[in-house]
Design a binder for these strands. Structure first.
Lengths: 248, 248
DNA sequence: CGGTTCCCTTGATCCGTGTCAAAGTACGGA
DNA sequence: TCCGTACTTTGACACGGATCAAGGGAACCG
């Protein structure tokens, strides 16, 4: 339950956390940080491992330290749609909610910095800047969800793939300087996870990636490593009118 | 700019507002209410009228008093996707954002209670419970957006229509007692707006509605009025595993 | 009253993506 | 090394929804 990954065990408080818990630490006073310390613990999940099922009681909210996790929804007959992609520094869990509404799964090996939910909610009520920060993050996610809705509702398979690659390239590059030259990215997702993200089948994902490769829009180095010779052509394929937005 | 619809002109403060501005008034002290009074004004838009274009400067955030408005995104070639449906008591606009990211349009004649953005943001920073309330609302919208993503990515045309009808029935009925018997709803949306919502063409929307009618799942009284003999069969058609969620 | 406009319905056909099937590839364990 | 498993690629075909096209009905207005 309270496993400490070796490289995290030495961290004394949130301010030393590699991602600084975007959500909660940015402007915390020392006494607030120490209150965070009391209610936090780390957990690590292997790739493919479920973190939480919809309907489960939520004991914690969490900040992703490393790895990739996904929020998904599944229909009775098995149709599945990813509705959230959690990358390092993203926040998971809804304060005030007892019962999980979505499945949460580790896509790659994932480490979470968890905060016990009840005391975290109390902190939220008594520390204005935390709820303000959380509001900002929720609104960012909402923007991302809305871009995603355009993708799901109106884009072609080819545009969906190009959009996803652009999104990952944008998030993966430390700074936002992905516009010009060539970029290399590691795909943290299997073809199946990509299909869940994009509302496609994995066969269609595979076919479209092959097509983009054949036409020189991307180059594959192994199944999971992608080189993008020219970011602009990829963006053009994505069909975004602006320069891509911040789709998560 | 500061038009006062006759039936609203007599309202002295937010606490008399028909919807009580879910976002901001629930727990306001008298002096906070008076600060809200100073920065608010009403605006009314005719059906079809644009409220704001993506890229416009946002002078206000607003609460929907009456009518229906929509957030939409449009691609260069004209493909359009609705990404938000604003019903009375919903909040529009993002505090902290200068430039609108989505188009906002009045679907029916709509009255907004607007708050000048800058002073509203100041209020937000100095009044913790307002940002807490806004956080709750943002998280509700995020949940709705995620249900919507499942709809867009994985549901069939028929399921999409049934889901939309269920959503509107749920929101339209004052209390949530829509589960059992027959329900009548006014469709505030044209076929085209429905198609924008659902990621379909208007022809497909029309065909599926006709099909549901022929099979007795719904009955039409005019184009815009729908009677649902049995809410449960409709929900079954919608393909939701639970009892429908709160999809906005 | 007829004409115009807007919205809706229905039909015929086409195409993109899903479905089903089979083979290829990488990786870890015995 | 060989096998088993998980993931990916590719092919053939089917089908749902898009597209193109025509026409109906109601509201509004001269």
């Amino acid at each position: 339950m309270t496993e400490l990954p070796p490289d995290l065990a030495r961290m004394k408080d949130c301010s030393q956390c590699p991602i600084r818990h975007r959500a909660v630490c940015a402007r915390c006073e020392p006494d607030e940080l120490s209150r965070l310390e009391e209610i936090k613990y780390y957990r690590t999940f292997e790739a493919g491992q479920p973190i939480l099922w919809a309907g489960d009681r939520m004991e914690f909210v969490a900040s992703v330290v490393s790895g990739v996790a996904a929020l998904t929804q599944t229909m009775e007959d098995g149709r599945r749609q990813m509705v959230g992609l959690l990358l390092p520094s993203d926040f998971a869990g809804r304060p005030g909610r007892e019962i999980a509404k979505f499945d949460v799964t580790a896509v790659t090996k994932t480490t979470l910095c968890c905060f016990r939910r009840k005391p975290f909610e109390h902190l939220l009520e008594t520390t204005p800047h935390v709820s303000q920060r959380l509001l900002e993050m929720a609104l960012d996610e909402l923007d991302a969800a809305r871009e995603w809705m355009l993708l799901l509702g109106r884009k072609t398979a080819r545009e969906k793939i190009a959009s996803l690659l652009a999104i990952i390239a944008r998030r993966a590059s430390i700074n936002g300087d992905t516009r010009g030259g060539n970029v290399e990215i590691d795909l943290p997702l299997t073809r199946e996870a990509m299909s869940d993200y994009l509302g496609l089948t994995l066969e269609t994902v595979s076919r479209q990636i092959s097509a983009l490769k054949k036409e020189g829009v991307i180059e594959l180095q192994g199944k999971r490593r992608v080189m993008i010779p020219d970011m602009r052509t990829l963006m053009a394929e994505a069909g975004d009118d602006e320069d891509g937005g911040a789709l998560l």
